[in-house]
Design a protein around this nucleic acid. Structure first.
Lengths: 341, 341
DNA sequence: TTGAAAGCGCTACCAG
DNA sequence: CTGGTAGCGCTTTCAA
């Protein structure tokens, strides 16, 4: 099994020592060429780089990180559903900001609290400098130790639970309020709210905003026109049909997220094109087809979170913040239809 | 400046040696608890894990990778534009497949050939096991050395240039052909093709397919109805307006990518809703609004590329392949309108 | 400006 | 089943 001492089948990757040998200098000098290029004479530098080039040498950052501060120049992004456009856009924002600071983003996904903990631990083991995560579990106190060890941690889209950490979230409550208020102002009194899943932070907030707007004009904030499920697999179409089948169906519907919006557009087109609709999150062709939405900028959300993570690296002990990213109501027609029926 | 030998302000991260000390075993045994849990007695294991837990110990994979095969359990994905939904979906597919194999994806972006080379070098320095990249530069021979060193390399969406490597691409030519042929079959004779940027591999192929379909029925394959630019900043709307302003404007338009499709929908809605349209890449609400497109599955594309990269890890010397992912024509109305004007 | 030696945290090899 | 020893590739003292 031993391949002997010469002529291995596949060449081994050259090391700094190989480059040193070939260029006739010490390993330390080669190291300097990469770490402090100015601290070495131009002649030597050229000689070393030529040798490195001939050998296809690539400095091993694992080894150098190990010796330096023990951390990689990477940050971790943890999310449940990379399926969803929203989180993918957030990832885009993170990547952009981080790459501008010479950091690379590593992406890890998990769908449940145990998975969340597992992938975060894995990232810590990989010695990322910071972790940006969309909290899923009900308890993130397990990160407290990491935080004290100087890991920069930012919760994204939802606040972390049982953990003092920075978080960056949308102004969900205001979004729910703006959507509903606009419908109220256009004369609607029976206003539905549809989403799946419900019972998560963002939806609780948006619903609170929905209640705010209804309460403001003395409309009941009961749950007659609320349809949702904790189970993501329940088709949202069904929930909407359900609303439309009520004896006294809503004349307008607020959708809790992008999936709900798509589903609502689909069902209403087919059954009740006269029902008003306000979506949450923007969609590709929504402007083209007059779909009013609560709009925000997920890429910017990611970017802001990244900036916060970077700030935290410089100032590990500063006060934590909850940053709220604004949302806006975009009137395109579907939300400005008068009540019918 | 020296912090002395005791009581550092911020605790240092515990090492395997610390855990060994606390649990009263040798470092090697602690190591085994993580690497080969079965090779250690349950008692010892419990004892060690308890100590590790108390100290918030996280094994350092940098150190272990260094000692093992020198590579991280990571793969790199390199793309120019994480802005574009298409590449983001590809990333999703890669991440899914890789995480199923206990690998994490690190994302690196660059917009020009030099940047491409730079970020790929950086990934190699990070010792990723494989690199999946959307080729940008005109010469990727600089990767030849890496390939020989056993790095698994897969080109995505376009083939690599001057490099023997696996690649995974869409069936672009067939897509262009299907879009155009359908329009021809519906009676169109003046068929435009719009895209920006042109002059990239995918567009060359799609255009070849466009020519195929036109040639098949003896229509001229001149560039009268071709509008595009190498400059991404030229607004596609302008290109479409340009076509419509011709004395003898096209009665149908094929769009070369998702951005062109969006732009075309926008312009046609406003000016010439009777002009037929076939898009490339699917869009959020396209089904809802009857937009015919050439559809494919970018997530699947990413997944296939990931699988190929994994295969290549096991078989570094096997023959390279160019895998072509199918596309399909989806008739929804906009592409089946008869010629008008 | 350059070099020798020690060690970052972990694991493979060989004893016991 | 467990422990010493050596070393992965690099960089940081310190000295020349």
């Amino acid at each position: 099994m031993s391949s002997g001492q010469h002529a291995p089948i596949v060449h081994a990757r050259p090391t700094l020592a190989d480059v040193a040998r070939l260029s006739g200098v010490s390993p330390k000098t080669v190291s300097r060429v990469y770490a402090h290029p100015d601290a070495v004479s131009p002649d030597t530098r050229e000689k070393v780089l030529a040798a490195a080039d001939r050998l296809h040498f690539r400095p091993n950052v694992l080894a150098s990180s190990l010796r330096r501060d023990g951390l990689m120049r990477t940050v971790g992004f943890v999310t449940a559903e990379l399926t969803n456009q929203f989180y993918v856009q957030v990832a885009t924002g993170i990547e952009r900001e981080m790459s501008a600071h010479d950091l690379t983003m590593v992406v890890a996904t998990s769908d449940d609290p145990e998975g969340e903990r597992r992938v975060i631990d894995a990232l810590v083991s990989q010695r990322v400098r910071s972790i940006l995560f969309v909290p899923v579990g009900a308890d993130h106190s397990f990160l407290e130790g990491e935080r004290r060890l100087g890991l920069s941690i930012v919760a994204l889209d939802r606040p972390a639970r049982n953990l003092v950490a920075d978080s960056v979230v949308l102004d969900n409550r205001r979004g729910g309020y703006l959507a509903t208020r606009s419908l109220v102002e256009h004369g609607h009194r029976r206003i539905g709210y549809v989403c799946n899943p419900l019972g998560v932070y963002t939806q609780d907030e948006r619903l609170a905003g929905y209640d705010d707007a209804l309460g403001e004009v003395g409309l009941p904030t009961g749950r007659t026109y609320l349809r949702g499920s904790d189970d993501v697999s329940v088709p949202i179409e069904r929930l909407i049909e359900d609303l439309l089948d009520l004896p006294d169906p809503p004349t307008a519907i607020v959708c809790g997220n992008n999936r709900a919006t798509t589903a609502a557009v689909r069902v209403l087109r087919r059954r009740r094109a006269d029902v008003a609709l306000v979506g949450y999150d923007d969609l590709d062709l929504a402007d083209m087809f007059g779909i009013s939405v609560i709009r925000h900028d997920p890429v910017e959300l990611g970017r802001i979170a990244a900036r916060r993570a970077l700030h935290r690296l410089d100032d590990p002990t500063g006060a934590t913040e909850m940053i709220v990213v604004p949302v806006e109501y975009v009137a395109r027609g579907s939300g400005e239809r008068p009540p019918v029926g």
